[in-house]
Design a protein around this nucleic acid. Structure first.
Lengths: 249, 249
DNA sequence: CGTCTATTTGAGGTTGCTCAACCGTTGTGG
DNA sequence: CCACAACGGTTGAGCAACCTCAAATAGACG
């Protein structure tokens, strides 16, 4: 019933009821913003707030969803496997949820997920999610909006993969990071380069060479530290496009 | 307000109100199945049923959604552009809808769409969709399920693109067609090979060579006609996986 | 029968992959 | 404190998958 309670060495410990303090945290999540009292209560009644150590396997593709997962703290990598290959579909930060689509349709996970850092997850029972969806229009709208945004993110990802070279994808990813940091000229890559390579859909070696090649286009890298020395130059090379690159679009 | 009424030579003619006969057609669409009377009425009140000639541009990426589009008849290609490149995201048959996510979020289209054949579309005003979503839980659930399925389709597409070679994608696409025709050994490709190539994310020349290469794996092609001479062999090569290839998964 | 468009084929270049060796950090045990 | 794994990343070499450009064919159509 709840595989999480027994999985992993020294890791997850179940807390059968979300305590007041932690409920406050959960409510602060964009996810539950503006919900009815009743709905919130129902969602939280069976919810668990759990910790997992880095590298813990959170869900496994093919399994059936028992909970909606919301990242409260830490970073989660969502990926798919095929034969002996594996690729990153997304990397999620605190405040984001995953596998809503599987929960909603009550279908098997298409993806697996692992903790990239130690994480804290809010686990909301799948049937509660479905029930509250039917009762609380505000929540229904929230879910649908989430699904719609997720859909659109993937449409962009498909365009990104099919229409751009790996260099272009990397360049645009860098611009994305820079923009997110309010235009700061340097930032640190928030996870392993191996993970970044998987996210961009290339081999780690190619990422390495691409970084080297971007020196020509106003980017300097040392370790996880990236400095954009010539933003205009990088933009000229990356040629970002609103429809693919604007997060809010 | 309604660009469709004036676009295209000899093409679309608007019908301000959906006639009874045509409403029956619309109601037969899976989309409106099980909806409340009131909801149906509201959706249909401002709906248009329109014809477009083959090749007509139905929506253009970057525009704002005025209607939810449902394919009543014919086939529609959904694609994205970037610089001078273009790629097919999906090909839709009768009964399927498109740009629900954009309508729901009231955001600009991420994709363009064109008619591959002469088509008949049901155009449901975007604000009606949003309004009925809030009023009719059955419709809300339908929409969310549609969004969730669309999301999952794209997750599979991303896996398909990132984890498989173009040969493998083609082989699995063939298996897909065969399975859809209840296991018949031969079928005709339902659109241009150029379109198929774009859907698979490769240049037309590569598709051509891939078809030739699949002769080794139990596939014979002449024109648009495909015959699977050795299903077991093709499956051994394609190695389909439920998580990526089962439509209902 | 010409004319167009779709597809195939050939040639040659690019991009990205794999394998293997190497480097720099980090962590460990003696 | 030092040698030595161990790990993540980089680099080099060779190969495979794809792409582009240019012709040659094959159909579809008037």
């Amino acid at each position: 019933m709840c595989a999480y309670l027994v999985r992993g060495p020294g890791g997850p410990r179940g807390e059968p009821i979300v305590r007041a303090e932690e409920e406050r945290i959960s409510l602060a999540l964009p996810y539950f913003d503006g919900l009815s009292e009743a709905g919130t209560g129902q969602l939280m009644a069976g919810a668990l707030l759990q910790r997992f150590p880095a590298q813990a396997e959170l869900i496994r593709q093919g399994d059936r969803p028992a909970f909606l997962h919301v990242v409260v703290e830490g970073r989660v990598e969502v990926f798919t496997r095929y034969r002996d290959r594996e690729t990153t579909v997304d990397v999620l930060d605190a405040g984001e949820s995953f596998i809503l689509a599987a929960v909603f349709l009550d279908s098997a996970y298409l993806k697996s997920a692992r903790a990239l850092t130690p994480v804290r997850l809010l686990l909301v029972p799948a049937d509660a999610v479905r029930a509250v969806f039917r009762q609380d229009p505000a929540f229904a709208e929230k879910c649908a909006a989430d699904l719609a945004r997720g859909y659109r993110r993937l449409v962009k990802e498909v365009s990104n993969l099919k229409l751009r070279s790996s260099m272009e994808r990397l360049a645009n990813w860098l611009l994305h990071q820079v923009r997110r940091d309010a235009g700061s000229r340097h930032f640190t890559i928030p996870f392993d380069k191996k993970t970044l390579a998987a996210k961009l859909g290339i081999a780690p070696e190619v990422l390495s060479r691409n970084f080297a090649a971007l020196a020509e286009h106003g980017v300097k890298v040392s370790g996880k530290l990236v400095e954009v020395t010539d933003l205009a130059r990088l933009e000229a090379f990356a040629r970002p496009e609103a429809v693919i690159d604007d997060p809010g679009y």
